[in-house]
Amino acid sequence: MERRSFLRGAVIGTSAAALGGTLWRGAALAAPAQPGAGPYGALGAADANNIRLPAGFTSRVIARSGQKVAGTAYTWHNAPDGGACYADGTGWIYVSNSEIDPSGGAGAVRFSSAGAITGAYRILSGTHQNCAGGKTPWNTWLSCEEVDRGYVYETDPWGVNAAVRRDAMGRFKHEAAAADPVRRTIYLTEDTTDGCFYRFTPTTWGDLSAGRLEVLVAGTATSGPVTWRTVPDPSGATATRNQVSGAKRFNGGEGCYYANDTCWFTTKGDNRVWQYNAAASTLELAYDDSLVSGTAPLTGVDNVTGSASGDLFVAEDGGNLEICVITPDDVVAPFLRVGGQSASEITGPAFSPDGRRLYFSSQRGTSGSSSGGITYEVTGPFRA
């Protein structure tokens, strides 16, 4: 999926190096997604779960914090956060983090081919404020601790193998991760106001026990070419974001998603969606709420995922408590809105392997407390 390919080609073809950062900054002002009619149409009236959806879509509650998942012995964890789906024979598994401290960890729900819940269980325990994370190509879940000098834990969605702490991936306030199987590296976001964007390249692809942690280096412009430099001490004795001169700062790194040579990541402090073109090693804005025409439909930018059609689905922490869609032709529009939960945030959006179901959580539900989390499933005619 190549967004703004014509614009990018024009910039490169005009010799961006000779023109410095000016042309890149001008391109960024024109390029980010703008409000428009979404591919799924207007939101309908609120359903029984107080969710407004486009025509043809339905929702159901999968789990509630503090209550047993239907038909299982597992009590769903508090403050459900980042999530991902995994194929499981003819069914699938949805994994979800728990953003509480202490105890954190992650749990999972297993589904049959018809979408019936067939099991639920714990896959990680005894960790701290597990916020987001990422899925690996070898079908493990990277659960990230959003605390100072936090770790990444590699976990088994099937709950068979014990979780392993991956020290080489760095100790910092981790948020999300996204694997790039072409360059055999994993991108990482950092949730601080002066955070950085990292990549971890394992010595052996598929084995995260050793490797090289690097930080993105760029100028102050929002768009243009970037480079990477090695973080000397991933242990974080000195904060990893302060070890490399020229490391680019991002205001509250959040979600991270990779597809087709591109890694999208979000920053909540300035309501932006960034686009890193891994093939060209360039950075640009895919969305910035301060650069839209009229009222910004997407605020409180947080977790992000994508669909087979090339649409990005971006969850809000605050705002109207929506998941908004950003299309490949740079239109941004609401896809769903959760009502009556203004003290919560939307977390963990992830599609089932067949692309027909979208899972997400309201982290604090109607109560506004971490014990009030609700995890949902939306089914409908998603674009293929």
Rank of each mutant, 00 (worst) to 15 (best):
I326S: 00
G348A: 09
S125T: 13
L7N: 09
A116R: 15
S367I: 02
V160R: 13
F200E: 03
F197Q: 01
F6Y: 14
I323L: 08
S362H: 05
Y198H: 14
L285W: 08
A237L: 15
T58G: 14
R364N: 13
V378Y: 07
I51N: 02
N260F: 11
C324I: 00
S245V: 12
A177N: 00
A163D: 03
Q363S: 06
A42D: 11
P381G: 09
D311A: 11
T262R: 15
P334M: 00
A350C: 08
N271G: 10
T299K: 11
G294T: 04
T222V: 14
C324W: 00
G21S: 14
T366L: 07
E322T: 13
K268H: 14
P181H: 10
K268G: 10
R212I: 06
S367C: 10
Y376G: 07
R249Y: 08
F197V: 02
I326E: 01
V95I: 04
Y359P: 01
Y94I: 07
P137M: 09
F335Q: 03
A350D: 05
L29A: 05
T267P: 06
T118L: 11
L321E: 03
D101R: 06
W228S: 05
G372W: 05
A87T: 02
R357F: 05
T295Y: 02
W228E: 07
S352N: 14
T136M: 07
R249T: 09
D88V: 00
P54L: 09
T240A: 12
A210Q: 11
P137D: 14
V301Y: 06
A247R: 02
T227K: 11
N50C: 12
S367Q: 15
G300D: 01
A87W: 08
V160L: 08
G104E: 01
T90W: 07
A63C: 09
L285F: 03
T204Y: 02
G119N: 13
A296S: 12
P328T: 04
W141N: 05
V304P: 07
Y187T: 06
A350Q: 01
A286N: 13
V11D: 01
A286I: 04
E2C: 07
P334C: 00
E345S: 01
Y198W: 06
A30T: 15
D101F: 09
C196W: 10
Q363N: 13
I100S: 00
F57W: 04
G306L: 01
G246C: 03
W228H: 08
T240K: 09
A42N: 13
S342E: 08
S59E: 09
Y121S: 05
Q129N: 15
G211P: 01
A37L: 06
G56Q: 09
A221I: 06
G104C: 12
A28Q: 14
R166E: 02
Q363A: 12
R122A: 10
V182L: 11
G133S: 10
A87E: 04
L321V: 07
G319M: 01
G89V: 01
R171A: 11
A239F: 14
G306V: 04
R357M: 14
T347W: 04
V331H: 11
A18Q: 15
A177T: 08
A296C: 04
G246R: 11
T222W: 06
M1T: 14
S209F: 04
A114D: 09
A18G: 08
R249I: 05
Y40H: 13
A296N: 11
A308H: 12
W92M: 01
D354Y: 10
A280K: 11
A162S: 13
R25A: 11
